[in-house]
C-alpha cells in the first residue's frame, strides 16, 4: 500500500513556513549556512535558501554533506558514496543541517560528526521535512515540517523534482518497504 502524505503544494507551504521559522529563531540570517545531507537534504536546503532569499533578500550559503564515511551501520551495509561540498568555512557559523526524513537519528549523529571534522561552528540546528519518530538517539529537530506517526517497518519516501519525480511524500507499507528508513 502506497499512501500519499504530502503533495507538491503542501511541501512548498511547509518549506515556506520552515524558512520563516529559521529566520525568526535566528533573528535574521547573519552567519547562517544551510548544509543538506546527501541526497534529499541537499535539494531541500537549496529550496530553503531560495525562500530565505525571497523574504530576506540575502544569500545564505548552501553546502552538501556526505555522511557515508561517518555511518555506524557499515557492518550492515556500506552506503554509496557521494561528495561533501561545503564551499565555505564552518568556523563560527550557525549551521542549519537539513534532511528529508528524520527517523532513528543515526544519520544526524553521523552528520554532526562529519561537520565537527570540518571545523567549529557556533551552533548547529536541525531542519527536517518529515519526522516519522522511532528515535534511537537523544536528538531532536529544531524545525520539523510535518510529524507523521509510522510503524517501524514502514518506509517514508520524499520524492523531489530535482531527482526527476513529482514532488510528494509517500508512505510505503511493510510489504513494499524492504529496508525501512
Amino acid at each position: 500500500m502506497k499512501k500519499s502524505l504530502l503533495d507538491r503544494k503542501e511541501i512548498d507551504r511547509t518549506l515556506t513556513r520552515m524558512s520563516h521559522e529559521i529566520i525568526e529563531k535566528n533573528k535574521g540570517v547573519e552567519d547562517l549556512c544551510l548544509v543538506g545531507i546527501q541526497r534529499g537534504g541537499v535539494y531541500l536546503a537549496e529550496r530553503l535558501a531560495k525562500k530565505i532569499k525571497d523574504s530576506e533578500g540575502a544569500d545564505v550559503p548552501v553546502g552538501s554533506l556526505d555522511i557515508s564515511f561517518y555511518r555506524d551501520d557499515i557492518r550492515i551495509r556500506l552506503p554509496a558514496v557521494s561528495r561533501t561540498e561545503i564551499p565555505f568555512s564552518v568556523d563560527g557559523k550557525k549551521i542549519i543541517l537539513v534532511d528529508d526524513v528524520f527517523f532513528t537519528g543515526r544519520s544526524i549523529r553521523a552528520a554532526l560528526d562529519a561537520i565537527m571534522d570540518l571545523g567549529r561552528p557556533d551552533l548547529i540546528q536541525l531542519a527536517v521535512l518529515v519526522d516519522r519518530g522511532h528515535r534511537e538517539l537523544p536528538i531532536r529537530a529544531d524545525y520539523a515540517g510535518k510529524n507523521i506517526p509510522t510503524s517501524r517497518d514502514e518506509r517514508v519516501d520524499v520524492l523531489l523534482e530535482e531527482d526527476g519525480h513529482e514532488d510528494s511524500v509517500v508512505l510505503l507499507s511493510a510489504g513494499e518497504a524492504g529496508n525501512g528508513r
Partner: peptide
C-alpha cells in the same frame, strides 16, 4: 571523495 577528506584539517574519518 577520499582526496576531499585529505584536504581538510582533520584528515581522518571513522569509516
Amino acid at each position: 571523495s577520499f582526496k576531499d577528506v585529505l584536504r581538510r584539517d582533520i584528515k581522518k574519518v571513522p569509516t
